[in-house]
């Protein structure tokens, strides 16, 4: 197949996966949240269990008038959702779903993920600034401060994995985790990085990832009770939907990256390597579903942090811990 035909197929497949998973995640969040609060949740749309609720919501948003405040910086205001969606989609280029099921196995994979996912900070800051609304401005500034503060623990956690794996390509990181770790009675046992000494790294990564996604307990930028909707206050209709979609698409992408870096990605101990191109995507989806469920669970477990507590947690605890984790990974690599 020619380069362009392959690329076209890949784009369609990734779009389908991203939008499909985002819709499923929105539905899961509605339903799981409801059950955690002894409610039933969506019930009517689609006829059974309200399965069509996300679609119905999307269709409704589509019919809403698209408002731009008179005093807003119109160009930047209109551009912000583009930046967020572009960043959310571009991350998927390097996520491996199987040994040969990856759009592009970039050598810089892990670095690329960090670079692209921090692009959405720009979109959020643009949205907050351009709205010409005080709530939006405060929300945008909070978001920027939060995203840069938690960018560092995320980066340090990934660095420790890179030290251990000796590569930044996500496919190779999965391959390293699938290699036999030790042999018991002739049976090679492999283990993901979370078992092989990256448990601290995984914890830091998940905390930082939830903060990067601005989810509760780190949702100061859109704290409803004080900032209405933060940087999204002025957005309505389809532009708001784009931010919403981007948020859930990044949530799934972040979970997929965590699964790839720490939980062995598409590989599962006991699944023969020859079948991974078929079974692999489902293994990865299972791990992603687990992590997404964790994030939804956290949302209904912890109260929101105060802004200075949030900064203190990143600078006082996560960053020193992340540095220590890298040093430990280096010592294990060199000495052992």
């Amino acid at each position: 197949m020619s380069f362009w035909a392959t690329l076209g197929l890949q784009v369609v497949a990734v779009l389908a996966v991203m939008l499909g998973l985002a819709l499923v995640t929105i539905y899961a969040e509605l339903k799981i949240s409801a059950h955690m609060q002894s409610r039933i949740g969506p019930y009517y749309a689609g006829g059974r269990w309200g399965w069509a609720q996300p679609l119905a919501d999307g269709l409704k948003f589509l019919q809403k008038e698209d408002l731009v405040p008179r005093l807003a910086d119109s160009t930047v205001y209109r551009l912000a959702p583009y930046v967020v969606i572009v960043a959310a989609l571009a991350v998927w280029v390097v996520i491996p779903f199987g040994p040969s099921l990856v759009v592009r196995d970039l050598d810089l994979g892990a670095f690329y993920v960090l670079a692209v996912s921090s692009l959405s900070t720009l979109g959020v800051l643009m949205a907050g600034w351009a709205s010409a609304n005080k709530y939006s401005l405060i929300g945008g500034l909070r978001a920027a401060a939060q995203l840069i503060a938690y960018e560092l623990p995320l980066l340090l956690a990934v660095l420790a994995v890179v030290v251990q794996a000796g590569t930044m390509s996500l496919s190779e990181i999965v391959a390293v985790q699938a290699e036999p770790w030790f042999v018991v009675a002739g049976v090679p046992i492999s283990a993901p990085f979370i078992v092989k000494g990256q448990i601290i790294g995984f914890t830091i990564f998940m905390i930082a990832a939830i903060a990067e996604l601005s989810r509760i307990p780190f949702d100061m930028p859109i704290a409803e009770s004080e900032l209405t909707m933060g940087y999204l206050t002025e957005y309505s209709g389809i532009r708001f939907t784009m931010f919403f979609l981007g948020e859930y698409a990044s949530m799934v992408a972040m979970s997929a990256i965590a699964a790839t870096l720490y939980l062995g990605g598409y590989a599962l101990p006991g699944v023969p390597a020859a079948t991974l191109n078929v079974v692999g995507p489902f293994v990865l989806l299972g791990k992603v579903a687990l992590l997404v469920f964790l994030m939804i669970w956290f949302r209904w477990t912890w109260p929101r942090l105060r802004e200075d507590q949030l900064q203190a947690m990143a600078w006082r605890w996560l960053i020193p811990l992340g540095l220590l984790n890298i040093v430990l990974a280096g010592i294990f690599k060199v000495v052992l």
Partner: peptide
């Protein structure tokens, strides 16, 4: 990467 960004 450029194509993916353009599609986004």
């Amino acid at each position: 990467v450029a194509v993916f960004m353009a599609v986004g």
